[in-house]
């Protein structure tokens, strides 16, 4: 099916820059909902979106992977519980935890975050919101770690607004884990204002120690295009704070590419 035309000029990265080479895989499971939005965000950020199918046994030479939101396998058992066993997830886990070279950058959004925790790529887990209801609203976050592959273009403690939509979004972990996350600065995003779901320590997103794997419950891919994002001071739906997540990874990759070229 033909895609809705891109609005705005975000995708026009200057010809010949390293940006054009960035191939970002976007994973689709049966029941994934936001894969098209994630692919669009990748293109708006200046990269090339590469569709990846859960049953594939290869990463198709992508430079990074986004696992988008939705209800993989209906999430009937537990969110992400079945998806973590997909063949592609084994390849992603291997590449993301590779000892040598640069590990594969992986971003999990919402259901993707849940899958990453079920796959033990990130600590903790998600349970039902404390109010037990589905909630969909713009959410203010503070970016607390700008050294990850997916947050490098944010400024430290920058406040951003992106949509949050879930029913199972309450981040939980045992006290030791929470202490370690806080001590090592592994909280990537934190809810600002009222905690929307009871998450421990207001945690909205976390990163692994190497900064290549990041997961968050809110949806940066839904705030990448003026007119279709979150509300901001310039007008309704004008917020594009989420786009920085995608420009971050592309510039991170460009950085590692040029380093690679220099060697």
């Amino acid at each position: 099916m033909t895609e809705t035309p891109l609005i705005g000029e975000y995708s026009s990265s200057p010809d010949g820059t390293a940006l054009d080479g960035a191939r970002i895989g976007v994973v689709t499971f049966p029941g994934t909902l936001d894969d098209r939005d994630a692919a669009r965000a990748v293109r708006l950020g200046g990269g090339t979106a590469v569709p990846l199918w859960h049953a594939d046994d290869t990463l198709s030479d992508v430079d990074a992977v986004v696992i988008p939101g939705g209800f993989s396998y209906g999430d009937y058992l537990r969110a992400g519980a079945i998806s973590r066993f997909a063949p592609l997830m084994s390849r992603i886990t291997e590449a993301a935890t590779a000892d040598s070279g640069s590990p594969l950058p992986v971003l999990g959004i919402c259901n993707g975050f849940q899958i990453l925790t079920e796959a033990h790529l990130l600590p903790g887990s998600m349970i039902k919101n404390d109010h037990l209801k589905f909630r969909c609203a713009d959410q203010v976050l503070r970016v607390e770690n700008t050294s990850t592959a997916w947050t490098s273009q944010f400024t430290q403690d920058e406040l951003i607004t992106v949509p949050l939509k879930n029913q199972d979004g309450q981040y939980v972990a045992d006290e030791d884990t929470l202490t370690r996350l806080e001590g090592e600065g592994l909280v990537a995003f934190r809810y600002v204002g009222s905690n929307p779901n009871g998450s421990r320590h207001d945690i909205a997103g976390v990163t692994n120690a190497r900064g290549n794997v990041v997961g968050l419950m809110p949806h940066p891919e839904h705030a990448v295009e003026a007119g279709y994002g979150s509300d901001d001071s310039t007008g309704m739906r004008n917020g594009t704070d989420g786009l920085t997540v995608f420009t971050s990874i592309i510039s991170s990759l460009a950085g590692s590419h040029s380093e690679g070229g220099a060697l």
Binding site: M1, P30, G31, L33, G70, F71, Y73, G74, D75, Y76
Partner: peptide
């Protein structure tokens, strides 16, 4: 209702048409 099956049907039918 089984919305998961329905979502799979959506993608499956669009792929068949395409």
């Amino acid at each position: 209702g089984d919305p998961f099956s329905e979502k799979v049907l959506i993608e499956c039918c669009l792929e068949l048409f395409h």
